[in-house]
């Protein structure tokens, strides 16, 4: 007789899982599984929803009063060029970062466009299959190299921002680092999505961790308190973020160097 696992019975408790009728029949017949299910159900039944403290009719207004002076600038959906034009008014460092970010976006756009146009231009029937396969492989490797280079550059720039935050004075103005972080944030999301699509889960995971820290930096007051800054630093430390960013950047560059010989989807060492 096939018994059901604790996990399967948990799903059954929550009304999910496949073949529920089979589970139900089995529970009628199997004392061991029925006992396990009773224990799961008994434990979960103890966990009642906590009483949520009351909030009055004016609560929404109170929240508004607390946040109204802290509203950040809204991100624009696709306003890349407007965004860079706005950012260009800042320091030389910011300007160079803008250019680098714009270049990264253009590379990413080329990467995506290459993929799309390749798909669209594919002949209906391949006569010279071996030649086409070789061309496809070259094309895939080329795209992969572009992505590896772009993400590695992005990680290097992010590392500099994180390092600035880690080394900043205990309180003071972090608006410069915030500007860079804000700029990197949007690029990071694009790379993460692309990494996910390319099956690069480890890259996406590091970029996801990075985004969380960049968000925290961007949302902090420009004149940051020592306590708030310490909190950001602890979080960067706790996630071992600088380490992960460095390792991933090295891995990507290493893969980029060897991509001619290696397979285009060589696995990346997990860093967490």
């Amino acid at each position: 007789m096939k018994h059901y696992s604790e996990d399967e019975l948990t799903l059954y408790y929550y009304g999910e899982g496949r073949r529920r009728a089979n589970v139900e029949r089995h529970l009628d017949e199997c004392a061991a599984c029925a006992k396990c299910y009773r224990e799961i159900a008994g434990t979960l039944a103890m966990i009642a929803a906590p009483d949520v403290p009351e909030r009055g009719d004016q609560y929404g207004l109170e929240v508004w009063q607390r946040i109204r002076h802290r509203l950040p600038e809204q991100e624009t959906g696709f306003g890349w060029f407007g965004r860079f034009a706005w950012f260009d008014g800042f320091t030389g460092l910011s300007r160079s970062l803008s250019v680098a970010a714009a270049a990264a976006v253009l590379m990413l756009a080329a990467f995506i466009a290459g993929r799309t146009s390749r798909d669209a231009a594919a002949p209906p029937a391949a006569v010279n299959a071996p030649a086409n396969a070789a061309a496809d492989r070259d094309h895939a490797e080329g795209r992969q190299r572009i992505l590896l280079t772009s993400v590695a550059d992005h990680l290097d720039r992010s590392e500099r921002v994180l390092t600035d935050i880690m080394n900043a004075p205990d309180s003071g103005d972090i608006s410069s680092a915030q500007g860079w972080a804000d700029d990197l944030l949007t690029t990071s999301r694009l790379y993460r999505q692309d990494a996910l699509e390319a099956g690069e889960q480890s890259v996406a995971t590091v970029l996801d961790d990075l985004e969380r820290s960049l968000l925290e930096i961007v949302h902090s007051p420009s004149r940051i308190s020592a306590a708030d800054l310490e909190q950001i630093r602890r979080r960067i430390d706790a996630a071992a973020l600088l380490f992960k960013v460095r390792v991933m950047s090295d891995e990507l560059r290493n893969r980029e160097t060897h991509s001619g010989a290696a397979s285009p989807r060589a696995p990346i060492q997990k860093t967490s």
Partner: peptide, 28 residues
């Protein structure tokens, strides 16, 4: 937020942070 965090003060922080993020990302 309260159910997620189990703590009133944390829930308040989450409320504020969530609306700030929402405002920033409304364009998307």
């Amino acid at each position: 937020a309260f159910r997620m965090t189990g703590n009133e003060q944390d829930a308040e922080d989450v409320v504020q942070e969530s609306f700030l993020r929402a405002y920033k990302q409304l364009g998307r």
